[in-house]
């Protein structure tokens, strides 16, 4: 009896979102009870903060055309890891030497630890991320353009 009632409720697709939201809320409450979750100090993709560096908060470390010392999960799979990290274009190099705020515009400049992670060591993630975006665009444009 109770099963048929439950299945009647969840078969109505209007109830899907409230049900899922309820499950999320319950889990969040349980999650608060499970706190604290300890932070593991030995992080694989660590980030350091140095307010005096012009590249803060994306201080890259390393020198151009030399291999920077970065931690990797499987160093044997990325023989060229560490070279992207230290790279700055000449314009970025000029900006870095003349201002303290290059780090805030780091997305406009190639190189750096973000690029190192995004395109070298964790490149597959970047491919899948952009595939999600393209698939979403494809769905949106198909529905929009349909007569």
């Amino acid at each position: 009896m109770i099963i048929s009632r439950i299945s009647r409720i969840i078969s109505n697709y209007g109830n899907l979102m409230p049900l899922f939201a309820f499950a999320c809320a319950v889990l969040c409450l349980l999650g608060i009870l499970m706190l604290p979750v300890s932070y593991h100090e030995d992080q694989l993709y660590r980030k350091t903060q140095n307010p005096d560096s012009p590249l803060d908060p994306y201080e890259r470390g390393g020198r151009p055309l030399e291999r920077a010392n970065i931690t990797l999960q499987y160093p044997e799979n990325s023989p060229y890891a560490g070279y992207v990290t230290a790279y700055l274009t000449p314009l970025s190099l000029y900006l870095a030497s003349s201002t303290l705020y290059l780090g805030t515009t780091i997305v406009a400049h190639p190189g750096g630890i973000l690029d190192e992670i995004l395109y070298n060591t964790r490149g597959l993630d970047t491919v899948v991320e952009s595939s999600i975006l393209f698939v979403a665009f494809a769905i949106g444009s198909f529905i929009f353009r349909r007569r």
């Binding site: 899907l16 899922f20 889990l27 979750v37 932070y39 593991h40 694989l44 999960q73 499987y74």
Partner: peptide, 29 residues
């Protein structure tokens, strides 16, 4: 449409879970 909204909302616990995994263990492998 309802399913899409649930899928959208589902990304929050999904990626939140992965984030807690990397914060508490230091690795994703």
């Amino acid at each position: 449409f309802q399913y899409g909204i649930v899928a959208l909302a589902g990304t929050l616990p999904l990626f939140g879970g992965a984030a807690i995994v990397v914060a508490s263990t230091g690795t994703l492998s």
